[in-house]
Structures are given as structure tokens and as C-alpha cells.
């Protein structure tokens, strides 16, 4: 089973410390909710894990190896980082095929994932015509292409319709039950409370909590209350790298 091991990770963008000596392990077989105010470093963490951003110091390993050294990365890690990360003039199916070809993943697998994510009828439409929810579904299909043991989802519920949210909830549950490592960031406390087994909370690039969901919420009325009690001093919305309000 594959875990994500983050050791002493620091990422500076100019004078800003997006990540500040972060050490945490994301374990397999459970859904880990990834929480924190805007600009806390959640997306940066995922980007460094995926080798997109170079850390200032520290390491992020997937199954003991840096992502960039994995021989066939899509078969190890699937990620939904940015729902619109597809060329707008390409069709959904061609978009997935360009990714699949790099790993010799058959076109039949692409078609099955389009089916599973409810995009089969839109497969030959250009991505620019897609709603945000449809783009999220397409991003989810891309993340699952290689049937990976590790799945990273950055705010996957954005723009999803109720049906899509239920599908995502069932999917993340099933992936974790199959023994996979699932890390899902979200600002929807109710959704995280329903789906997560474990929580990792960041504030200003530092680890604030790493605990099972029930222990985290034990002395509070809800996950939301527990979250605010922990993060309010760290919610600096003027911080750069801040994402959508």
C-alpha cells in the first residue's frame, strides 16, 4: 500500500512561505480530509507532491519515491488539481486520450471512465462548452485513468450538482475501502464530515492538526465548530496564493 510522506517541506514564493516545515504522512485505506483557510498551503502541498512545484527544502514522497521518478506516474497517483486544466478547444475524449496514450492506457478505459463520470454523451464536445461541474467530472475521469492507488482531489465538489456530490462521496468511500490513499481538500465542512475518516489541517503553511475525524470533533458540537476553534487565528485572507474567496 502506498502512502504519501511529507518531511520538513518548505515552499517559498519570494518572501511568502506557502509551506513552512510541514511534516505529515497520508495513510492508505482511509479518506483524509485536507482542511485549512485560503492560502494555508493545501494546493501547494499537492503541487509539490506531484512534482509541479519544486520545494524550497524538504521532501514529498509517494510510496517512498519522488513523483517525477515514478516510471508510470498515472498508475501510481491520480490527481484533480484544477478542474479546467484542459485545452478548451479539445474534445473531452481527445483530452483524456492525450493523457492515456502516454501510459499506453487503452481507449476503452477512457470510454468507460467517461461513462462512469456521466460524460459519455458529452465525450465529443469541446471542453470550452462544459460547465464547471462537467469539468470537475472530466478532471475526476483523468485522475482515475491509471487506476491509481493514490488519489489527490483539490476541491472536487466545486460546481458539482447534488448527484455529482453523492457520486463523489460514494467514489471516495469505495476507493478508501479498496485500500487506496485518498486525500481530499474542501471548504465544505458538512461534506468532509460525511466522507473523511481522518483530518489534516493546515494554517499558514504549518500543520495544525493530524487526527481521526471523531477525535478532532470530540469536544465540539460539529466539525465546523472544531475547525473554527483551531484555524481562526490563522485565517489571513490577505495572504498571497489565496484562492477563490
Amino acid at each position: 500500500m502506498t502512502s504519501i510522506d511529507i518531511r520538513g517541506l518548505t515552499k517559498r514564493y519570494g518572501p511568502v512561505r506557502a509551506l513552512d516545515d510541514l511534516t505529515v504522512t497520508i495513510e492508505p485505506g482511509r479518506v483524509t480530509g485536507f482542511l485549512g483557510p485560503n492560502g494555508a498551503g493545501k494546493t501547494t502541498t499537492m503541487r509539490v507532491v506531484l512534482g509541479l512545484d519544486r520545494p524550497t527544502s524538504g521532501t514529498a514522497l509517494v510510496g517512498g519515491r519522488p513523483y517525477a521518478t515514478l516510471p508510470d506516474p498515472l498508475r501510481h497517483v491520480g490527481a484533480l488539481l484544477d478542474a479546467s486544466a484542459a485545452h478548451p478547444a479539445r474534445t473531452a475524449r481527445d483530452h483524456l486520450l492525450t493523457l492515456a496514450l502516454t501510459h499506453r492506457i487503452p481507449a476503452a478505459r477512457v470510454d468507460r471512465l467517461l461513462e462512469e463520470t456521466g460524460l459519455a454523451s458529452a465525450a465529443r464536445r469541446r471542453v470550452r462548452t462544459f460547465s464547471l461541474g462537467m469539468r470537475q467530472r472530466l478532471g475526476l475521469a483523468a485522475a482515475l485513468l491509471g487506476d491509481p492507488p493514490v488519489v489527490l482531489l483539490d476541491e472536487p465538489t466545486n460546481g458539482l450538482d447534488p448527484e455529482g456530490i453523492v457520486h463523489l462521496r460514494n467514489l471516495t468511500r469505495r476507493l478508501a475501502d479498496e485500500g487506496r490513499t485518498v486525500l481530499i481538500s474542501s471548504h465544505l465542512m458538512g461534506e468532509i464530515a460525511r466522507v473523511a475518516d481522518h483530518l489534516v489541517v493546515l494554517g499558514q503553511g504549518r500543520l495544525l492538526a493530524d487526527a481521526p475525524l471523531d477525535r478532532f470533533t470530540a469536544s465540539h458540537a460539529s466539525l465546523e465548530d472544531a475547525y473554527f476553534a483551531l484555524t481562526t487565528p490563522f485565517a489571513d485572507h490577505a495572504a498571497p496564493e489565496g484562492r477563490r474567496p
Binding site: G51, L74, V77, L81, D82, A85, H103
Partner: peptide, 11 residues
């Protein structure tokens, strides 16, 4: 704006 390169480099 879509930064398709990120997905390309993930693959």
C-alpha cells in the same frame, strides 16, 4: 488560462 501543462507534466 487553463494551464493544461500541469496535467501534461503529471502524465
Amino acid at each position: 488560462d487553463n494551464k493544461a501543462v500541469r496535467l501534461s507534466l503529471m502524465a
